[in-house]
Design a protein around this nucleic acid. Structure first.
Length: 148
DNA sequence: GCCAACGTTGGC
DNA sequence: GCCAACGTTGGC
C-alpha cells in the first residue's frame, strides 16, 4: 500500500498506531480492499513520490472494508458528491502499525530482482500506478528477506 | 519540472 | 461503444 510520506508516512502510522486508509479513488485499488483484504492480513507500507522510494515497514489490516467517509466531506480533498451514505462509491480499511523494516527496501533494489524472484510483482510492471497492489506469499517472503 | 502511462469523462 | 481530451500518478 503506497503513501506519499509528505502526506502520511510510516512514522505517522507508528505514532498513530492505527489509521483508516482513506482517499482511495481508483476502482481497482478499491476492489482489492473490498474483495481481498481481511482482518489479520499483512501489508507493506511503501513510500512513493519522495527522495528514497521503497518499502519502509509492515502493517496489518484490522477491519473489513467500509464506506470512506472522506468522500462525504465537502471540505476534504477527497470529496466525491457521487458517493452517498446510502450508496457509497468508495471504501477503505483500517490498518495497524506492525514494525519498520531494519533496512529500507528501495525501489531500485526491488528492480534488481525483476527478472527472477519478482518477475510478476505488479509494483514493477510497466506503467503501474496502482496505490494498492496484491502480492504473492512467495514475493512477500522474498522481499522481507531483503529487508531484515 | 518533465513526461510516460494510465484512468475517467463526455460528445458523438 | 468509440475515442479524443483531459487529469492524475509517480519515477526520474
Amino acid at each position: 500500500m503506497k503513501s506519499e510520506p509528505s502526506v502520511y508516512s510510516i512514522d505517522d502510522l507508528k505514532k498513530d498506531k492505527k489509521t483508516c486508509w482513506d482517499g482511495i479513488r481508483n476502482y481497482q485499488a478499491r476492489n482489492f480492499m473490498m474483495r481481498d483484504m481481511n482482518p489479520g492480513d499483512l501489508a507493506f507500507f511503501y513510500h512513493s513520490n519522495c527522495d528514497v522510494i521503497g518499502i519502509y515497514g509492515v502493517m496489518s489490516i484490522y477491519s473489513k472494508s467500509y464506506a470512506d467517509h472522506s468522500a462525504f466531506d465537502k471540505f476534504s480533498k477527497h470529496y466525491d458528491p457521487t458517493s452517498t451514505k446510502e450508496h457509497p462509491r468508495w471504501f477503505m480499511v483500517d490498518v495497524k502499525f506492525e514494525r519498520k523494516l531494519q533496512r529500507i527496501i528501495t525501489l531500485g533494489s526491488l528492480k534488481e530482482h525483476s527478472q527472477k524472484e519478482l518477475l510478476n510483482f505488479r509494483l514493477l510492471a510497466k506503467g503501474n500506478r496502482l496505490s494498492i497492489i496484491p502480492i504473492e506469499e512467495k514475493e512477500w517472503k522474498f522481499i522481507l528477506s531483503l529487508g531484515e
